[in-house]
Each structure stands twice: as C-alpha cells, then as structure tokens.
Lab assay of single mutants.
Amino acid sequence: SEEEIREAFRVFDKDGNGYISAADLRHVMTNLGEKLTDEEVDEMIREADIDGDGQVNYEDFVQMMTA
C-alpha cells in the first residue's frame, strides 16, 4: 500500500531530508545485517535513482518498490 511504501521510505531516509543517500542506505542495510561494499551501495543507488541526481527521492523509491 502507499502508506507502507511511505513508511519504508521514512526508515531509509535517516536524516528526514526527503532523499535516501548512499549513507542512509548503507546504514539501513548494515542494521539488517547486510555487509555491503561501497561499490555495492553505490550500484543500488544508481539503479534506484531514476532522475539521475545521485540520491533516491520519494518518487524514485515508489517506482523501485512497485516495479
């Protein structure tokens, strides 16, 4: 549901600035027990970053979650 997606976005957007940065993503993945290299984190950001601004905004996140 849209509310679940919004809630998930809030979990990833640690600093609440409306964007998921590589640092935000790394933090959440580490908490989930996933040890990722910087390259892996950057690749995840690139794949999710639809508009190419280097971070994942809510619209990018929705597209990723509903793809």
Rank of each mutant, 00 (worst) to 15 (best):
L36I: 09
N57M: 10
Y19H: 05
V56N: 00
L36V: 08
Q63E: 06
L25Q: 00
D13N: 01
E59H: 08
N31K: 14
M29T: 02
G52D: 13
K35D: 09
S21C: 06
N57Q: 12
E4M: 12
E43K: 15
N31E: 14
T66Y: 04
S1M: 10
D24A: 07
E34F: 15
K14S: 09
Q55H: 10
F12G: 01
L36A: 04
D13W: 01
R10H: 11
I5V: 07
Q63K: 15
T37Q: 05
F12P: 00
D24G: 02
A48R: 10
E39R: 12
S1F: 10
I45H: 02
L36M: 11
L25G: 01
H27G: 05
V41F: 15
D42S: 10
F12T: 02
D53T: 14
N57R: 15
I45Y: 05
R6F: 05
G54N: 06
E2C: 13
H27P: 02
L32M: 08
Y58G: 01
T66I: 13
N57S: 13
I5E: 00
E40I: 14
E39H: 10
E39M: 10
F12C: 04
E47I: 15
E4G: 07
Q63P: 03
E4H: 09
R10F: 04
A22N: 07
F61P: 00
E40V: 10
N57G: 08
D38P: 13
E47C: 15
E59A: 05
A22L: 15
E4T: 10
V41H: 04
I45D: 00
E7V: 03
F9S: 02
M64Y: 07
L32S: 03
V56K: 00
L25Y: 02
L36N: 03
Q63N: 11
V62I: 15
A8R: 10
E43P: 02
H27S: 07
G52A: 13
Y58H: 01
E59W: 06
R26P: 02
M29G: 01
N17F: 07
Y58K: 01
N31A: 12
D51W: 10
L32Y: 12
Q55A: 07
F12L: 06
D13M: 01
E47F: 15
G54W: 03
S1D: 05
K14L: 12
Y19C: 04
E3S: 11
Q55M: 14
A23P: 04
M65R: 03
S1P: 05
A23S: 06
R46V: 05
K35W: 13
F12W: 06
K35R: 13
M29N: 02
N31F: 12
H27F: 11
G54M: 04
V11R: 13
E34L: 15
K14E: 09
Q55L: 13
R6A: 02
M65V: 07
K35N: 12
E40K: 12
E4D: 08
T30I: 11
S1E: 05
E3N: 11
I20L: 03
K14I: 10
V11T: 09
A8E: 04
T37S: 12
E47V: 15
E47Q: 15
E47Y: 15
M29I: 14
G54Y: 05
M64V: 07
V11I: 10
A23Y: 03
G18V: 00
I50T: 11
E43Q: 14
S1W: 14
D53P: 03
E34A: 15
S1R: 13
D53Y: 12
D24V: 04
E43V: 11
T30H: 13
M29D: 00
A48E: 04
F9Y: 01
E34T: 15
K35P: 11
Y19R: 11
R46M: 07
I20K: 00
D42R: 05
A67T: 14
G18W: 02
G52V: 14
M44N: 01
V56S: 01
F12H: 06
F9I: 04
N57E: 06
V28A: 11
H27A: 09
E4F: 10
G18M: 02
D15R: 03
T30Q: 12
R10S: 07
V41I: 11
D38C: 07
E7G: 06
E3C: 13
Y58C: 01
E59V: 07
H27I: 13
I5K: 02
M64A: 09
D38K: 14
N57A: 13
D15W: 06
E7A: 11
V28D: 00
A8L: 09
E34H: 15
E59F: 08
I5H: 03
D38Q: 12
V62R: 04
E39T: 10
S21I: 03
V11K: 14
G54L: 04
R26T: 04
D15Q: 10
E59D: 05
D51I: 13
R10I: 05
V62N: 01
R26C: 03
G52N: 09
E47P: 03
K35V: 10
E47L: 15
A48C: 14
D53G: 08
M65C: 04
D13C: 02
E43I: 14
M44Q: 02
Y58Q: 02
L36T: 03
E39F: 13
T37I: 04
D49R: 15
T37Y: 05
V62D: 00
Y58I: 15
E47K: 15
D38L: 09
N31C: 10
E3D: 11
F9R: 00
F9D: 00
D38I: 12
G16Q: 07
A22G: 05
N57C: 14
Y19E: 02
T30G: 10
F9N: 01
G54E: 05
L32E: 01
D53N: 13
D42I: 14
R26F: 06
M44P: 00
M29F: 06
R46T: 06
N17T: 12
A67R: 14
I5M: 11
I50N: 07
V62K: 04
M64L: 11
A22V: 15
F61Y: 05
Q63D: 07
M44K: 04
F9W: 04
I20G: 00
E43Y: 15
E3P: 05
V11H: 11
V11A: 13
D42C: 07
R6H: 03
E34Y: 15
T37F: 05
V41C: 03
A48F: 11
V28Q: 01
F9K: 01
L32D: 01
A67E: 13
R26H: 06
Y58R: 01
T30W: 06
V28C: 02
T37A: 06
D51C: 10
D15M: 08
E2Q: 10
N57L: 11
I45T: 04
H27M: 12
L36F: 14
E3W: 13
D13I: 01
L32R: 03
I45F: 11
N17M: 08
Y19I: 05
K14P: 13
T66H: 11
E40G: 04
A67Q: 14
Y58M: 05
M44R: 05
D24N: 07
E7R: 10
D15Y: 07
M65T: 02
E7K: 10
E59M: 08
D53H: 10
V62H: 03
D13R: 00
L25D: 00
G33S: 11
E7C: 07
V56Q: 00
F12A: 04
T66N: 07
L36R: 07
R46G: 08
A48G: 06
D38W: 11
